[in-house]
């Protein structure tokens, strides 16, 4: 193995590890009242930027919505967020978040565990089943009573399968700082990883996976293409579904016929002939040895 190959291997291993620890608070959306003018919103920007976990700030005045990107190495602290909004002269009405982690079950309660660079856990509950303001909410959050029968079954499957999930929903804390926060499941998606080769047909990119069975996925960049759009499936794989940089990268990988690892959310289309699509969140070129390793891990998981 040449020095260059060793360097590439080390690089991939490092980024592979980063991929493993990516479980985290991704962003929080604040519902803020009192945001009347852009000039006044500067105080909010300044106070939010003073937060330890601050990564990015975006505000939508007409909707009273503030999106705060959160650092992966910092715990989510709702108390400090509330204080920041208050000191800026506004009122925080609610917090929603997007979290990436694994579901775990302990003492008959289900948590979302962020076991990345910081360890933080959230009781999960189904908002339609548990009203936050109800007095008994505190007792049932995380317990089996907090979910409908269907959701409970789905969550238990995910706990057993150790799948990485993304949960988007309202989050709230308790006066007791030692008690984990609670996260309402509004949207739950599974984040998966596939190793395969890229193909291009009629100007569209696909990922062809041979293990465990041969499958073909259409590709898109999750940041670029919103699934809400009804026309989204028509754009999948085309240059409209990717940023310029990603498109060029895919072209390069295709030319060199490299094996790639794609991490992202998978969703199926209603029209069966379209198959499934992967929203690319991470894309890495893998060496054949890494691909074999990935295959081995997949087999082990399936055996389990």
């Amino acid at each position: 193995m040449t020095v260059k190959k060793i360097t590439i291997f080390m690089f991939l291993v490092f980024f592979g590890l980063v991929g493993l620890v990516s479980a985290a608070v991704e962003k929080v959306t604040l519902r803020v009242d009192g945001l009347a003018c852009p000039f006044c919103a500067y105080g909010l920007e300044k106070k939010i930027k003073e937060l330890e976990g601050y990564k990015s700030f975006e505000v939508f005045l007409n909707e009273g919505r503030v999106i705060v990107g959160w650092r992966q190495d910092k715990l989510l602290d709702l108390e400090s967020i509330n204080e920041a909004v208050d000191k800026a002269g506004f009122t925080l009405r609610g917090v929603k978040g997007s979290f990436l982690g694994n579901l775990v079950k302990e003492d008959e309660k289900i948590f979302l565990l962020l076991d990345g660079r910081v360890k933080q856990r959230f009781y999960v509950y189904e908002p339609s089943k548990v009203k936050q303001k109800a007095e008994h909410a505190r007792k049932v959050e995380g317990s089996l009573q907090a979910f409908s029968k269907t959701t409970r079954k789905r969550l238990e499957k995910l706990v057993a399968g150790r799948r990485t999930v993304r949960i988007v929903g309202p989050v709230h804390s308790y006066r007791d700082p030692n008690r984990p926060m609670a996260l309402g499941i509004e949207k739950l998606t599974i984040r998966e990883s596939f190793v395969g080769v890229l193909t291009k047909e009629k100007g569209r990119f696909f990922l062809v996976v041979s293990e465990p069975t041969s499958r073909r996925f259409s590709l898109y960049e999750s940041r670029k293409l919103k699934l809400i759009s009804k026309k989204a499936h028509k754009l999948e794989g085309t240059d409209s579904a990717f940023s310029k940089a990603m498109w060029e990268r895919l072209e390069e990988i295709l030319t060199k016929k490299k094996t790639v690892k794609v991490v992202g959310e998978v969703h199926a289309h209603r029209e069966k002939e379209l198959g499934a699509a992967i929203g690319i969140e991470q894309l890495e070129v893998v060496l054949p040895s890494e691909a074999a390793k990935s295959k081995k891990v997949r087999n082990e998981n399936e055996e389990k």
Binding site: P38, F39, V59, N62
Partner: peptide, 14 residues
């Protein structure tokens, strides 16, 4: 009166 409901990081006129 603000004739255009401008967002943050956009110029605003009242």
């Amino acid at each position: 009166y603000r004739p255009w409901r401008r967002e943050y990081l956009q110029w605003d006129l009242v």
